[in-house]
Design a protein around this nucleic acid. Structure first.
Lengths: 126, 126
DNA sequence: CTCTTACTCAACCGATCGGTTTAAGAAAGA
DNA sequence: TCTTTCTTAAACCGATCGGTTGAGTAAGAG
């Protein structure tokens, strides 16, 4: 995997177990042992998941006696939403312009062939 | 990798090349050949990237003569932002309550009721 | 029909991933 | 100190990933 933070964050959240861990940490800090219980895997496996989340900056941990509770660092979410929103907006702006163009061509129709974008596709989710 | 769509979307965007492809498609549809040019890898490699994006629902393609232009399906972004916002909000709400609790304990410092936040509560995800 | 363009399929390769088991810290309590 | 509890490290394994090369398909253009 690439070593930039955005890649690490997306990659970390690509795993359902790690997303579930994040979901539980949104509710409150927890230790490795607590986090590991619900899953049918070893504590060591969950420890690895935690390390991935930590490397992505999504989780921080501070030693506290023997324990080392995990804390969700929600700010990193902003990195993703910023990226996502940027290109969503860009795509939407592009659609807006295309729709305007098509509308204009509808008014005075018989010029220009438009093969670059099929308006029938708009709004078709996946 | 897990086979649910959220995992596929996060996983697809965990790769910088694929994010760059998405960025370029936000600017307008493009063919495989066009997309492949800037990268120092084979056309086949880029074709694989496109397949990953297609399986995630981020890109659609329709045959058009020999070509098969790629089109960005920006609606899938909503799936991610919904997930991200949910847990960001949840974490922020939690912080808000904790701050309020600490403030209350500061005001009248011996009757604090710590049961308002139950750390054992489980949030389901994925 | 042949040639060229655009794309895909299949096999392979090294690296990484998610999991295991086994072993080794690190900190508190007896 | 010895024990117990919680966490990490190391080695290993099968599966998947990102890339390659080489051959194959689809559809104009001559």
């Amino acid at each position: 995997m690439a070593d930039d933070q955005l890649s690490r964050v997306f990659s970390a959240l690509a795993d359902p177990t790690r997303r579930d861990i994040v979901a539980r940490l949104a509710d409150g800090d927890a230790t490795l042992g607590e986090l590991a219980k619900p899953y049918g895997v070893s504590v060591q496996a969950v420890s690895k998941h935690l390390k991935v989340l930590e490397d992505a900056g999504l989780v921080s941990r501070r030693r506290q006696a023997q324990r080392k509770p995990c804390h969700l660092e929600a700010e990193v979410f902003d990195l993703m939403t910023a990226w996502i929103e940027r290109y969503r907006r860009q795509a939407e702006e592009r659609f807006r312009r295309l729709d305007a163009l098509l509308a204009a061509m509808d008014d005075d129709s018989d010029s220009a062939d438009i093969t670059t974008h099929d308006p029938a596709r708009r709004g078709a989710a996946s």
